[in-house]
């Protein structure tokens, strides 16, 4: 089992529904967010290309945050999901310093928090909150080890990219371009 998220940047309209769904589902404190939308404009008018992306923790195969955690609070569970155990986290900030995606933040209660791919929903057989609410259905979630899953097929048939692959983290959030 290897969970991955595939996001179609050609279908995303940047509505921020995924952001709000995550904040509601996971009780994210006000002012914080586990996912966010970026708008990238390339070129100068009139020759411009616009790209909208919903970004979050990439649940990297080679996760630097897990490597540098001094207590083992950051760990990888079945399916390659990177999680933080609040009661093992001392709030040293090493994982925040090590994340090339700046996907982690210090929860006001002190421990470090981030996207969990909605691990608690996956256990019940549901999709992550962000994926389930997307109005343009531009987000896909599934198992890369299964060649017949929707995400495997999309990555086989479409052009895609990952964020900052040069950081060597082997991210598991893919963007169709």
């Amino acid at each position: 089992m290897r969970y991955a998220m595939v996001i179609d940047t050609l279908k995303c309209v940047g509505c921020s529904d995924c952001v709000v769904a995550c904040q509601t589902e996971n009780d994210v404190p006000i002012g914080y967010c586990r996912d966010w939308i970026t708008e990238t404009v390339d070129g100068t008018y009139p020759n411009i290309v616009l790209e909208l992306k919903s970004e979050r923790c990439n649940h990297c195969d080679n996760a630097p945050c897990v490597r540098c955690c001094p207590t083992g609070a950051s760990h990888i569970v079945d399916g390659g999901i990177v999680l933080v155990t609040p009661n093992e986290c001392i709030g040293c900030g090493a994982c925040i310093q090590s994340c090339p995606y700046d996907a982690r933040y210090q929860h006001p209660e002190g421990y470090v928090d981030k996207c969990t791919f909605c691990h608690h929903r996956l256990e019940k057989g549901q999709l992550p909150a962000c994926v389930s609410v997307c109005p343009t259905k531009c987000m896909y979630f599934g198992d890369l080890d299964n060649p017949n899953s929707e995400v495997s097929k999309l990555l086989k048939n479409r052009k895609w990219k990952t964020l900052a692959p040069e950081a060597g983290t082997k991210p598991n959030v893919y963007y169709l371009i």
């Binding site: 939308i37 970026t38 708008e39 404009v41 070129g43 100068t44």
Partner: peptide, 8 residues
């Protein structure tokens, strides 16, 4: 030129 911003 490339410009990136957080719309959310």
């Amino acid at each position: 030129m490339q410009e990136e911003l957080f719309t959310s």
